[in-house]
């Protein structure tokens, strides 16, 4: 394994991802927080690459850094009167404590557990090449059912989003009844 390159990349990308994540938490502005979130997503995609998961890394960039972030920005824009300060709620203390505790627990398990049996030289030989073909085979082979249900899931998420926001019956409230529905339809199609 071309160890030094990977090791350096791992540390740099880890620092980037964690730092961006912390910035999401600390940022005082909601829109800035979204930007940091995108940065974290990108760092994560880099980490995926170090794990030889190139297809997933691309999907990560497209879906998370692309679609979902756009959705978030849209949502912020559609709620103009809501606060933009990314302020903390009443539950900041339990939130931070739970976050720290979970990180500590996972870290403890990560270093304490007996991973020797689970990692080692064998992993290095693992296919670093054509992941897409294998994934494609699995998707329409062994996991075809999940694949099909996922399509139903997306369809009904779309439908659900429209149902929730599309105001057909209350023309009195909306100046342009079609406008909200149109926006939402676009918004909901993004992830699909």
């Amino acid at each position: 394994m071309e160890s030094t390159g990977i090791v350096v990349a791992f540390w740099v990308l880890s620092a980037l991802t964690i730092g961006a994540g912390l910035a999401v938490f600390l940022s005082r502005n909601l829109v800035h927080a979204i930007m940091f979130l995108i940065l974290a997503f990108l760092g994560m995609a880099g980490l995926f690459v170090t794990l030889s998961a190139d297809f997933i890394a691309v999907a990560q960039v497209l879906i998370y850094a692309g679609a979902i972030s756009v959705l978030l920005v849209f949502a912020v824009m559609l709620t103009p009167l809501a606060s933009r300060d990314n302020a903390n709620s009443l539950y900041v203390v339990p939130g931070v404590l739970a976050g720290l505790a979970l990180a500590a627990i996972v870290g403890f398990v990560a270093f304490e557990a007996d991973w020797a049996a689970l990692s080692g030289a064998a992993a290095d030989q693992r296919a670093s090449g054509a992941t897409i073909e294998v994934i494609g085979d699995l998707l329409i082979g062994r996991y075809v059912l999940a694949f099909e249900i996922a399509s139903i899931l997306l369809l009904f998420a779309l439908l659900g989003a429209i149902v929730l926001v599309h105001e057909r019956t209350e023309p009195a409230v909306e100046v342009e009844p079609g406008a909200a529905g149109g926006e939402l339809a676009r918004e909901s199609r993004e992830p699909a």
Binding site: I18, M44, V92, G95, V96, A98, G99, L100, A103, A104
Partner: peptide, 14 residues
């Protein structure tokens, strides 16, 4: 684990 923890903290305290 750390990223998950940050996620939890954000989800719980924003």
């Amino acid at each position: 684990g750390i990223v998950f923890g940050i996620g939890v903290a954000v989800a719980l305290s924003k």
